[in-house]
Design a protein around this nucleic acid. Structure first.
Lengths: 191, 191
DNA sequence: ATCGTTTGCGACGAAGTTGTCTCATAAGAA
DNA sequence: TTCTTATGAGACAACTTCGTCGCAAACGAT
């Protein structure tokens, strides 16, 4: 019953909703006793850091599976485009479990994790910069802002998902078209 | 020294950084004693709700000053465009003080505030819908998603501001162009 | 100078949380 | 079955936070 991975996922989902949940709250939400929770994670801090580490693992895996480094190195527009879309789809796959806005605060006190997060972010920003050089993304905006804006869109998407305002099958279209095109109507040839 | 408005603003800024700060932490961060803090706000809950109420006040004022209701009622494209830009600028003015992502969680336990937030959100969504009808915003996306995405962009902007990644004077341009145009490069006539 | 107000400081009990422990029970493998 | 392991329930002290209080000092207006 007590698959550690299961506990972590449940705890993450619960923390997504109630950021300040105590160990007792979490145990109840997960469906295990507080003692069991403590057997798996000696400390509340340990649990939080484990969750954060797992989120970073996922993030890194998504980047790797999308092949952003190879694509950036190649500079090939087609490869870059493919990698970008794979990256976004990877984020969408975990958008419901991982509270992106939350993760950052979970690790604020552990320099090693903070630094690892920054490395992942830098790697991603370098990828966006490559996309800009290849003409696949606007070059008149900082690559760092592209990263930040995408992050914000994912946060918003997750929020809307939680509130049931958007359907899961729509999120890919919403993210892609918003990220690429924004909200200005396509210029039409007015007759 | 103890202007209540000053205390609220300082507490808000501090909570933006440390979501779980105790009354002692807040008092220290603000620069007053814990007793004084309790004299102004009997309970931590009271303080949080006051902050949330203030955020809702600001939000409503921004909507009012932008004149989104009149613009939506008129249906006039020019008026709608003016109101939209005023709305965005209004948000930008408070983006550094108010943690948008935070506010929602502060009021989660007070139905009256939740409801008020939903009313403001609905009013804004009606405004976006009017913009869509007038052809000023894409009509192929839910107005509710427009609202959410804008929210996400503001969260991201605030985050980048806090981290010093973007300059205050750039945020208006970043927000406007991202919101309207996204990150796809403008189609160029390749020679 | 004096009075009234506000503030900081320190203390207090009440309440909640944390981490540890014990014990009885349930589950599973040999 | 029997033995091993994992679990739930409960109790425990240590710690933190909270809300309140009393008191002395600082401040401001008259």
């Amino acid at each position: 019953m007590a698959d550690e991975e299961t506990i972590l996922a449940a705890a993450t989902r619960h923390l997504n909703r109630h950021h300040t949940a105590s160990m007792g709250d979490l145990a109840k939400g997960i469906g295990v006793s507080r003692a069991t929770l403590h057997r798996h994670f000696a400390t509340r801090e340990t649990l939080l850091h484990t969750i954060a580490r797992r989120a970073l693992d996922r993030w890194e895996a998504i980047q790797d599976e999308a092949g952003i480094e190879a694509a950036a190195a190649s500079g090939d527009p087609a490869a870059l485009d493919t990698a970008l879309r794979a990256l976004l789809r990877g984020f969408l796959n975990v958008v419901d479990e991982h509270g992106f806005a939350l993760t950052v605060h979970l690790i604020a006190d552990l320099p090693a994790l903070v630094e690892r997060g920054e490395r992942l972010e830098d790697r991603e920003i370098a990828f966006y910069a490559a996309l800009q050089r290849a003409g696949m993304l606007r070059a008149d905006l900082p690559a760092r802002w592209i990263s930040g804006a995408l992050f914000g869109l994912l946060v918003a998407l997750r929020d809307r998902l939680l509130r049931g305002d958007v359907a899961p099958r729509d999120i890919e279209r919403l993210l892609f078209t918003t990220f690429f095109d924004g909200f200005r109507p396509a210029a039409e040839e007015t007759s």
